[in-house]
Amino acid sequence: MSKKDILSRLFQMLIVLVGISFLTFLLTYISPGDPVRNMYLANGMMPDEQQVAITREEMGLNDPFLEQYGRWALNCLRGDFGKSYSLNKPVVDLLAARLLPTLKLALFSMAIMLVVSIPLGILSAVYKDKPIDYIVRGLTFFGVSIPNFWAGLLLILLFCVQLKLLPVVSSSGTFKDLILPAVTLALSMSAKYTRQVRAAVLDELNSDYVIGAKARGVAGWRILWLNVLPNSMLPLITLFGLSIGSLLGGTSVVEVIFSYPGLGNLAVSAITSYDYNLIQGYVLWISVIYMAVNLIVDISYKFIDPRVRLRTDSVRR
């Protein structure tokens, strides 16, 4: 990936960000709730009309839409996402405090997912249409069909209520907190990735170079372990990157079930209490992180795969 490509990607990211920020701002602008009233309600006050009118003016809510948006966007650029109405703290501080727990959760569930899906996917591909393949495919089918909020509740029922091995609420701050939420997240992801790994390995097994290596008398295990498997992992790197990003935004359900103190939980409570600054800040943060991760994955992929790295300047004669 040349410098020019990276710059153009960064430029695209900027446009997407402007679009996303505009959209979230528009959403909160047209939403049925009144932010001022909600702000007072969140702090347990019942304001009279006059108070509301004064605060509206103070917060600039009577200005034209574009002016409000512009002011807000400029502040965001300076790193000031405003103050959370419901929690009475700067949005940046709130988000920063929750980022690490969610990151831990996401990475741990990714690790579980990799450990499960790579071996299963490989087995299933190598023994295609054999009993083991059917078993794996059956498991993945169940995995993609089970809603993760139900799976999470069932896990609580089993490990916390019946076996009493783990706490029901995951906010003790210890490693135990991570186990069930991560397993729940990993469950459906593993199913999806096992399918992807299987498809990728099958794709490689069918490539011409496998025939070539066989014709040269290279041993089967060498073809599989040193050629087919490394190659089939290449396209998966992009997918893994995408999932880290979408995991950061997709943990809400699981965080709520396990009362896990992460970003997703914060976002849900922000939405329930119409805490607009917090919602907007959250959406923007997640999109920046998501796009940054994708960019990094794309760039690194281009260094790993020689076909992509060297495509532009081939030496033909």
């Binding site: 011409d208 170079y209 025939i211 070539g212 014709a215 020689p306 076909r307």
Partner: peptide, 14 residues
């Protein structure tokens, strides 16, 4: 031994 229509394609591209 065997040679193919495109021997390059019969080698691991990576």
């Amino acid at each position: 031994s065997m040679i193919f229509q495109d021997s390059g394609a019969m080698m691991n591209p990576t």
